[in-house]
Write a protein that binds this DNA or RNA. Structure first.
Lengths: 239, 239
DNA sequence: CGACACCTTGAAGAGGTTCAAGAAATGTGG
DNA sequence: CCACATTTCTTGAACCTCTTCAAGGTGTCG
């Protein structure tokens, strides 16, 4: 058994409303809690799962921050997302019983391990869980539509502005500041996600800072003028 | 009732193995057939569903060809995919009970309408159906990862080559030629999907034709040298 | 404290876009 | 069935954004 595996209790988890259906009976909640068998700790830089590994479970992030990325044999890499507390990882593995991307912790992290056969079993009995699983997958599909829009039709400044706004919005939903954030990823990782080179990311940060929209000190970013950023995102479409 | 609604029979459908789980008992198959209540005909240019409409059903394409696209209020548009016979549309609508993209027929089409509440109901009882639904959603997530890789890290030629190879591969799986295809979409729609302008798409077609990899007559494309196209896709990663 | 990873900035260059014009195909109505 | 309007496609030339290459600075961790 994994030495970093720990028993878990959804009942007291403050992320419950993020990863669990709402309005469950106490009884159903307890049954789901049995599915969420263990926690697993992941050190910064370590993989939660790797491309090619067999798929067994979905993972709900309790603490920490992850990136997921796909890679081709010939060395191309693309960050497909950044995940934070309450978000679910591993959905890519269902179709082929093998993971098709890598999940890497960008800071020390803890995830809840949810064996997928148990999820399927229980969601045949608990309607709310079933629908919740469907919603989670649908949400991921819709999120990726948004990324495709970003990659396919936005320019560098628009991409970075949209990225920053998305990040703070998600952080704010978790109780953090809506104006201040600490980036857990490198410029290169941001660039990969946004389809830009790290130099372009860096330059664009500097440009936003010059314009007074943000303040940047390495990975600490302060959003000074969120509306200016929003403006940048919307303005581009007027072409 | 929709005048173009027609009773359907999965049992004889030659696309069954594409949209249905395999190894079903005759009994289960009949039950699923009840879920697939009706067909619906869509004229070229008409919407199957629109962004904002309430979500009721998933759609399996019987004949015809679709595009799905997202749009922002401010006029930006992005084609998120092209769908052909046997593929499932509408997954985007599950999360919010409303569709978040547009599905437009690029040629006269017929789809099977599968009310989602019935799918959920039945997949609580038929394990194979449940898993099949999960796989379909996971497959879409993985597909979109591929598009993100394409948009985020490939150059124009690589994108178009990958696009063509993907199209013929899917067509071939449906019994069509693996070297000849008729594009059902405009250069502009290809461009939107690939994050390029229509002029770039056109120029790149011409370039491939000059190099002898393909022959292009408007929307008729003949793949002369598939390996050359594959080469182009792989080569780019060596940077 | 030193090695290493990460970030910033500049200058030159390439790839893709934009603007523009014309050609080919498609659809429409008489 | 043909003429005309419209849409779609191709191609050229100038331009612009982002990349590439390069160097130096900053921060971090053992």
């Amino acid at each position: 058994m994994n030495p970093s595996a720990i028993k878990v209790a959804c009942t007291n988890c403050n992320l419950r409303e993020l990863c669990m259906p709402v309005g469950l009976s106490d009884q159903d909640l307890l049954r789901i809690e049995e599915v969420v068998e263990t926690k697993r700790k992941i050190k910064r830089g370590a993989h939660l799962f790797k491309d090619g590994e067999s798929f067994n479970a979905l993972y709900a992030i309790r603490t920490g921050f992850f990136k997921t990325c796909v890679a081709t044999e010939d060395g191309r890499e693309q960050v497909t997302g950044f995940q934070m507390a309450g978000e679910i990882m591993g959905l890519d593995g269902i179709v082929s019983d093998h993971h098709t991307c890598n999940a890497v912790a960008l800071e020390d992290a803890e995830v809840c391990v949810m064996p997928f056969d148990q999820i399927e079993h229980l969601s045949r009995e608990v309607k709310a869980l079933q629908h919740h699983v469907h919603k989670i997958m649908s949400r991921e599909i819709v999120r990726e539509h948004g990324v495709m829009l970003l990659l396919g039709s936005m320019r560098a400044e628009e991409r970075l502005a949209a990225f920053l706004l998305n990040l703070v919005q998600r952080l704010h939903a978790r109780g953090f500041s809506r104006t201040e954030l600490v980036l857990r990823m490198t410029r290169e990782e941001i660039g990969s996600y946004l389809g830009l080179k790290l130099e372009t990311v860096s330059r664009t940060f500097s440009k936003f800072a010059e314009e007074g929209s943000i303040e940047v000190k390495q990975r600490h970013v302060q959003i000074i003028d969120p509306q200016a950023l929003q403006q940048i995102v919307n303005a581009g479409a007027c072409a």
